[in-house]
Write a protein that binds this DNA or RNA. Sequence first.
DNA 1: CTCTAACCGAGACGGTACGTCCTGTCTTGTG
DNA 2: CACAAGACAGGACGTACCGTCTCGGTTAGAG
Lengths: 214, 214, 214, 214
Amino acid sequence: MAAQKSAPKSEAPAPSSTRRSEKSRRAIYDAALALVVEVGYPRTTIEGIAARAGVGKQTIYRWWSSKAEVLMEAFLDLGEEAAKAAGDEPYAIPDTGDLAADLKGVLRATIDQMTDPRFDAPARALAAEGLVNEALSREYVAKLLEPSLQLYVARLRTAQEAGDVRPDVDPRIALELFVSPLAQRWLQYTGPISYEYTDTLVDYALHGLAPRAR
Amino acid sequence: MAAQKSAPKSEAPAPSSTRRSEKSRRAIYDAALALVVEVGYPRTTIEGIAARAGVGKQTIYRWWSSKAEVLMEAFLDLGEEAAKAAGDEPYAIPDTGDLAADLKGVLRATIDQMTDPRFDAPARALAAEGLVNEALSREYVAKLLEPSLQLYVARLRTAQEAGDVRPDVDPRIALELFVSPLAQRWLQYTGPISYEYTDTLVDYALHGLAPRAR
Amino acid sequence: MAAQKSAPKSEAPAPSSTRRSEKSRRAIYDAALALVVEVGYPRTTIEGIAARAGVGKQTIYRWWSSKAEVLMEAFLDLGEEAAKAAGDEPYAIPDTGDLAADLKGVLRATIDQMTDPRFDAPARALAAEGLVNEALSREYVAKLLEPSLQLYVARLRTAQEAGDVRPDVDPRIALELFVSPLAQRWLQYTGPISYEYTDTLVDYALHGLAPRAR
Amino acid sequence: MAAQKSAPKSEAPAPSSTRRSEKSRRAIYDAALALVVEVGYPRTTIEGIAARAGVGKQTIYRWWSSKAEVLMEAFLDLGEEAAKAAGDEPYAIPDTGDLAADLKGVLRATIDQMTDPRFDAPARALAAEGLVNEALSREYVAKLLEPSLQLYVARLRTAQEAGDVRPDVDPRIALELFVSPLAQRWLQYTGPISYEYTDTLVDYALHGLAPRAR
DNA sequence: CTCTAACCGAGACGGTACGTCCTGTCTTGTG
DNA sequence: CACAAGACAGGACGTACCGTCTCGGTTAGAG
């Protein structure tokens, strides 16, 4: 027999197939998200997901390598579904010409999202797993976090062109001044979260802590 | 209203005793910290800690309620020991009169600490557990994080008195402008960490993103 | 009252399955019997059986509810295997026409068996457990003891037909006159066991303690 | 090195002392007996006895080597107390001249005793432990069983003198013909126990199974 | 329009760790 | 110095999941 049968083979998770059951995939996503919300991430088990989804354990292990992977895909899928439902539009930060107001508005919307357990529970779970699993974290950042942050980058660049932000400022760093504090308060319970708080962050970030020169 | 005498205190872990074995406690701390560094938090088990410490499992369960609690106390103790060894002094941020330089210095030292696996591994583990366990997180924040942050508060207040920070700025929020971004990059691998990066954070925070008025 | 169709049967052990591993079952039997012989019943643990059999603990708990149950089935199986090997025949007490001789012969063989640790150890263990666990004891009696005793019943009935035993005697009680004393000496160490002793029992039982009328 | 300090020393259980607390000893007996009746022998633990007796565990370990030893002494003590209360008399089998009647009466009384859980539970427990622990069993037999059996020996000897039992019969063996069957039915649940049953045993034993010669 | 390989639900399997219970030893303070 | 109290190292308990492995039964898509 000549050359080896099939070339690519890739040791990646998927045995690749068109015969994959769409119904099972959806049931697994739903079960995983529901369990994380209902019983919490540590008590969410692969066996539990399989049972709730009415699926064999092997069907999970065939397509994913860990419960974190399952949850990640389920959460990504959730986001896509939500975007599809919302009509796809708000894939950008509004630009009314008033940078401060635009940023405050987006941050307020972010707070609202953090309050919804359907978002909060899986997002925290993935973040928690990521703290201790760098590979997963990088996937999380690349697929979920960074795309959102790039919206801020875009808006800040526009602001630079408009002269509202100093041209020497690196937007990718700049956005962290107001995004990271909110993220930390949210994830680590380091302080209360409110519209007033995020408004203040934007003001401090834009105008600085030091007094303006006379 | 008269002052209440003494709070009933925590109901939980300690059966209270002077007969507690100091030797075992230390062995447990050492084992827990070593295991987290060597095999990672998820593979650190109570059974493993007990075995490594040469201790019965019950001795752990008698005094703590979870591996996270053990690690928390071990990590706190580690900090105290380190402080004791260091001679207790550097419990404040230096004040050379140059606020920017002082902050940059402390942040650089923080980066160095984040690089040390003996600090990084348990700190991440506790943060990860906290993401998903609010009570633990609040303890973590109260005992470990907030005290450190208060050092920044103190330094910023001094700066306000010196006229280097606007008087209407809330220092507790202000410090987040440069501390939270670093924390997020560290914990979530959202970007590279370097002295240059933290220096930039301080500059942006102090002077703001917006151009200075003429 | 009409006859009920079929009893609901035992509710307990088996999740019922054809997928059960025959290899594991045998390994568990072997391990249980070996451990009881080697280290004694109280020091035989389910954990030990599992380890020795190269089996997960759950595989034992899935099919049995206690180490006594395991040992019971292992011991029953041992008997069946032995019977299979022996060619099935000696499922009856010999009938040479001489009742006394036949009984003495069987009792001597019983003594030999009691001397073999492979029989003695598990049999004692089951008896001991049964003393304190009526349900188990009844199972032990029904499956192991009573079938053996019925062989005596059969032989005594034949003897009654031959006129060697009074017709008004209840064979089920009669057999106890010589079987129970041996059992008690064996199990409780209440006296020495010898061929002479069992011969004497048979003689006393057949002819009585009282002097024969002239 | 001079001569060893104290001579006798005996590795036996008791450190020997007059300072021993009588109150504790009684409380331990009471607790042990009560627990065996209430929760059964296997669930009776030394810790449980100590707690119920209001006694430190060490006080038990100081004077006994196992829960079986404790129970043995407690049970012996129970017998002595009962005898003391009953006025000490019935330390012999009655002799009315009618051997059969006397034996039947004693066996009926024995049945009554076996029915009382305060006797049944500890007696079974000790028997069970003895099956698997020869040393304990020998102690049990020597201190509890054999003394009772010797009463039968005495009565049978009297009967031999009176011509009611053949002179060549060994009374120690003879008594087993009716005592052991009852014991086995009691301990192993091999059959129902009734006055009629024991009466039958006595008749069979005295007159034999074989037909009387013509 | 079969045939057959992959996926599917189900769940037994060898394992690991859990958190609890008890053992027998030890230590601490009281009477 | 016996005692109550109870911490300690150790080890078994019975349970819950892990990730792997059959076992039929569907269910395509290649022949």
